[in-house]
Design a protein around this nucleic acid. Sequence first.
DNA 1: GCTAACTTTTAGACGTACCTAAAACTGGTT
DNA 2: AACCAGTTTTAGGTACGTCTAAAAGTTAGC
Lengths: 236, 236
Amino acid sequence: MSPEIETLSLGSSRQRDGLNHQAIEDYLKTIYGLEQEESPVSTSRIAAAREVKPGSATSMVQRLHKLNLVNYEKHYGVTLTDAGRDIALEVIRHHRLVELYLIEALGFGWDEVHEQADLLEHVISEKLEERIAAALNHPEFDPHGDPIPGKDGRVADLQNLPLSNLGPGTRAVVSRIPDDADGEMLRYLGSLGLTPGQELVVCEVAPFDGPLTLDVDGAQQIVGRRVAGAVLVRRI
Amino acid sequence: MSPEIETLSLGSSRQRDGLNHQAIEDYLKTIYGLEQEESPVSTSRIAAAREVKPGSATSMVQRLHKLNLVNYEKHYGVTLTDAGRDIALEVIRHHRLVELYLIEALGFGWDEVHEQADLLEHVISEKLEERIAAALNHPEFDPHGDPIPGKDGRVADLQNLPLSNLGPGTRAVVSRIPDDADGEMLRYLGSLGLTPGQELVVCEVAPFDGPLTLDVDGAQQIVGRRVAGAVLVRRI
DNA sequence: GCTAACTTTTAGACGTACCTAAAACTGGTT
DNA sequence: AACCAGTTTTAGGTACGTCTAAAAGTTAGC
């Protein structure tokens, strides 16, 4: 009799075995996000993202490795296994469905749902997930413009790039705002009209990391580089 | 700098200090329920209700005592302090609001929401609680007939008694079905028409713990003592 | 190719929440 | 009053997820 199951199965294990795998789910979600930027992922990047000390991240990674949820080689880096990615995608699916539900059904603002969704994502049963998805008419994108992974694990791909990468004269549509941006930033973007789906034209790009001048629905808006880096767009 | 706050404040401490107090909340909720039956509460009753070993309950009670959430004297028993009761009532409020919401807003059956609510009750922010309560029009009772504690800590009182305590000829209305009854029992009661709000008349009570014969909406129903003990009613 | 600076891992510790097993206490009987 | 049965507490151990501090490994400059 092994003291711990060898490979965690997807999702409902949480309900079935009565164990709380919140920390595991959070690490897998973090690693998934970091792999999008650069793979393999170093333990120090994980530690920074999770706001824990490097040693804590290392020991958690070793645990995930024993559970066959990540591939791990000392001093080299971490990648998700298929099993690990499945769990990460399910948690992300829960997160984004919940965010959208809080906004659509309960009237929350799009800048105030992230923290609540971080808590709820771990305690959503398969059945509740299904009911929420149905109530929202099986959406493909969450309110931040992030794609919601399907139950088959497929994620719509967008070729997003940061607004700060565009040259003058480019037309684009705001595709997503990373949902870990702070609330003040989100409200500021909202006041500029920069919400997912909004079209814009880049008018000017000042040199030396200077501000961008945008045309948003006919209004001229000037934003700094840091803000422009936080807004992801698709060229149109 | 003390390593732990002295008295937990109500509710939003969960959000404020970032700690997970799920176990504490579960124990307080359990103790609250047991105090309704008999006070003070022995550690062994707590252990049985929480399905842990007696020693585990004792050590948790000692921790709750240090946090000023319960009064505790060795070998005598446990009662909630005001601070402890405040937390217990808030968790119960969350639980019952969530149960009702799952049924009313998301189409769940009343026999399948208890476990999901046990998970959700610990991760509902003040704001979400308020939105859910508003969406339900600030209800006073949950679908099992249990009263939902108000934010002021007041609980509607019902003088419920078990159906098994009634004598022949008594008229009564089903007030609540304890929501920790198993799903099969809940479905069985549903099939007999014994749902909260239903009126009934006790026709016969067989001796030696024999079955009760009921008139439910003109239909004769015969139920055993164990089932009758699980149904709480109010005399009318 | 050596060394300094940095990253990563290891080692040992702590608090939570559980366990098992043994000790201590309680209440009722003789 | 002493014992017995049952309850309750204590003592010591485990897994998780974090920490700090020290050791080991990697990379880059010279």
